[in-house]
C-alpha cells in the first residue's frame, strides 16, 4: 500500500502528512493528522458527519481521496472558533440546544457556515435544503434550523452595527 506525502493548509496552519494514496481525506484527518472532530457516519457521502470546508466549499471528507488536497485549504470543526471566541453558529447551537448526542454537530456547523457565507439571510426553506446533506437522528432538525436562522440574524446585526466578528 503506497503512501503519499501531502502538503496543505489545515485550520490556518501549513501542514504536511503521509497518507494512504487511495485512502479518504476523512481517514487522513482522523488517523494521520489527529483531528477527531471530523466524524464518520457512513463513509459514502450520505450523512454529512464528515463535512469539512475545502477551499471554502462544503464537502464530505469521506468522498475525497487524501492526495487530492495537495495545496488546498481545509477547515475542520477544530478551526471554526477563534482562539478566545466561539463562532456565532457555535454559540447559537449551544444556546438553542441544537444538539443532543452531538455526533452530527461538527458537520452541521460547517455546512451552516458555508451556507451563511454565501447567503447571509436565508429563509427557513433555504436552510433546510442547504443542510439536507447532514443527517441528524436526534433532534428532528427543528432546533438546528432555528439556531442557524438565529446565528444568521446575529451575524447580520453585528455586521450592520459595524463590529463584525
Amino acid at each position: 500500500m503506497s503512501r503519499t506525502h501531502i502538503n496543505c493548509t489545515i485550520n490556518g496552519d501549513e501542514t504536511d502528512f503521509l497518507s494512504e494514496s487511495g485512502g479518504s481525506l476523512l481517514n487522513a484527518l482522523r488517523d494521520d493528522v489527529g483531528l477527531m472532530g471530523v466524524k464518520e457516519g457512513c463513509g459514502t457521502g450520505d450523512c454529512g458527519a464528515c463535512s469539512v470546508l475545502m477551499d471554502d466549499r462544503i464537502t464530505c471528507a469521506c468522498l475525497i481521496f487524501a492526495p487530492e488536497v495537495e495545496g488546498r485549504t481545509i477547515v475542520t470543526i477544530e478551526g471554526l472558533a477563534n482562539a478566545d471566541e466561539l463562532h456565532p453558529l457555535q454559540q447559537c447551537f449551544l444556546e438553542g440546544a441544537a444538539l443532543q448526542c452531538g455526533i452530527c454537530t461538527p458537520g452541521f456547523l460547517l455546512a451552516a457556515k458555508a451556507l451563511l457565507d454565501k447567503n447571509p439571510d436565508p429563509t427557513e426553506t433555504e436552510v433546510r435544503y442547504a443542510l439536507a446533506g447532514n443527517l441528524c437522528r436526534c433532534t428532528g432538525y427543528d432546533k438546528i434550523i432555528r439556531a442557524v436562522l438565529d446565528a444568521a440574524e446575529g451575524i447580520r446585526a453585528s455586521a450592520t452595527s459595524g463590529d463584525a466578528a
Binding site: G45, G48, R57, T59, C60, L63, A132, G133, N134
Partner: peptide, 9 residues
C-alpha cells in the same frame, strides 16, 4: 444531484 457537499464535487 445529492447535497451541497456532493454538489461541490
Amino acid at each position: 444531484i445529492g447535497s451541497d457537499q456532493i454538489q461541490n464535487r
